[in-house]
Amino acid sequence: MHDRHPWLWAAAMAAYAFLYLPLAIVVAYSFNDSRLNVEWTGFTWHWYQVLLHDKNMLVAAGNSLLIALVSCLISTVLGTMAAIAIHRHDFKLLNFMVMTPVAMPEILLGVSLLLFYIQVLHLTLGMLSVVLAHVVFSTGFVAIAVRAALAALDERIFDAARDLGASPWQSFRHVTCPLILPAMIAGALMAFTLSIDDFVITFFTAGVGVQTLPLHIYSMIKTTVTPEVNAVSTLLMLLTLALIFTAARLAPDTLKGKY
């Protein structure tokens, strides 16, 4: 191998340490027997117990799960349809529209949706406004995953299906769908993860109507630093990790949109 200078190693390892150390500290202090995130004083499950009895936190977690579930279902359907339209019919404008929310800074999408909800729809901000906002940005991620799967298919199987007398719906139901199913599930998991983690867009579209986990974490860290935040962070990290791993196994291209 070429030019793997020791300095290169050292610099790269330092960067990896920079990436992992902060999170390791968050996780470690979630088991720390001290109110302050300053020194290790001993092991405890205490902060996880506090978490289980924190009613606001549980309500927020429930809301987040519900929003993630509904928005991931809708965006999986819309994203898959968009992917098919873009792949089979070369719909460039739709491609642009699907990818714009993926690329634009979240704050811009957040405020324009806020304006739209209040000024045009006269909608009371709450669960519905958040779910719709999440669908807007997660549709693109589903579309990326499904498009990659469609591009990998051999077009001749559709000719074969048609020759055998399959209607377009039958061809989708029995040929396309089973083949792109892993990508659809991967896209859905990605959409779920993005929804559960989203802070900025939710911040602008939730109003006072609904509290989600990231919004709750935000209000907690703005006022006090407590190891309870470390505990909920650790659990959230585990959940997202599991989802992303599953998505990456089902369809390796899924992560490309986000990173």
Binding site: L19, I25, N37, D197, I217, L236, M237, T240
Partner: peptide, 28 residues
């Protein structure tokens, strides 16, 4: 590559919070 992406499976706010701990007035 996965090792670069992995830390970012954690919530955006958690990553900010980590720095609140590291840079806090009493921190090491």
């Amino acid at each position: 590559v996965l090792l670069v992406i992995l830390p970012f499976a954690s919530n955006f706010l958690i990553r900010i919070y980590a720095w609140m701990i590291i840079l806090g007035p009493q921190s090491a």
